[in-house]
Design a protein around this nucleic acid. Structure first.
Lengths: 141, 141
DNA sequence: TATTGTTATACTCTATAACTATA
DNA sequence: TATAGTTATAGAGTATAACAATA
């Protein structure tokens, strides 16, 4: 393995480990928030001011469209999101946060980035470097 | 939201997005590798030279012990790992990669860090910075 | 008594294939 | 014909609770 591949491999391993480790900060079952990791991520990805078509949600999550149907079903059953018909294309359904969903999203973000969380313990400098590198990595959109 | 919280929040969002995006590089269903994401991560976490007790695996994955039983069952059914009794404590079972598991792990790592992958497109400098920051984040073990 | 791992159970996540409605 | 989303189905991931073996 070349020098660079070794770094990439190490970085990848750390990213995976971080992802699993941070799940401990998700609302635990029984909590008033009570969201599965996937549901958290959906809520996380939908900007309150920018409703998202289901297809794009599937693309961003990297999963099949049929999967999004179920995810949105469960969120809609809890009145956290709404399906709205698109004005342009009547096949498309746009997912929009409800006020309750918007509040829950804000609450979740606060918890995940509160002072006690791992990310907040990084120096401001490192946080900025991390954001810059990750933006290059995912192709900021 | 304070300045620092905003960075942390952005970093978190990017980490989640990266994690989902990189799943595209996992072996797709039907591939000769044919591993689920969770199975990939287990294989990834077990160093061929350092067998791991099931309990520690559960801790590292951040999931319940009962879940690890099923994961290891499926990997063992494919002869990728072996359960071995611990010498010290007869309650403990230690998970060890088989030669086939070890080969598959190496193949998977090669693929995930091959020249075409996102991580390898970062500059060497950024890769090193990323590793350093992530190590601080997860508490290098 | 406490701990490690398993089993039983229930729910969520996920993909594939077939379908409907729209383009 | 092609595309967006749904449904049916099957398998994998996940947690809880109860359990067996061991400490």
């Amino acid at each position: 393995m070349s020098r660079m591949d070794a770094e990439a491999s190490r970085a990848f391993q750390l990213l995976v480990r971080f992802f699993f480790a941070q799940r401990e900060q998700l609302p635990p079952p029984g909590d008033e928030l009570e969201l599965s990791p996937a549901q958290c991520h959906v809520l996380h990805l939908i900007d309150p001011d920018r409703p998202m078509p289901m297809g794009r949600l599937a693309g961003t999550l990297g999963c099949d469209a049929s999967n999004v149907t179920g995810l949105v079903d469960r969120l809609e059953a809890r009145a956290l999101v709404r399906r709205r018909p698109s004005a342009d294309d009547r096949r498309v359904k746009v997912i929009q946060l409800t006020p309750a969903g918007s509040r829950l999203r804000a609450q979740m973000l606060r918890r995940m980035t509160s002072g006690s969380c791992r990310l907040s313990r990084l120096s401001a400098r490192d946080q900025q470097a991390l954001v810059r590198i990750l933006e290059a990595l995912v192709g900021d959109q």
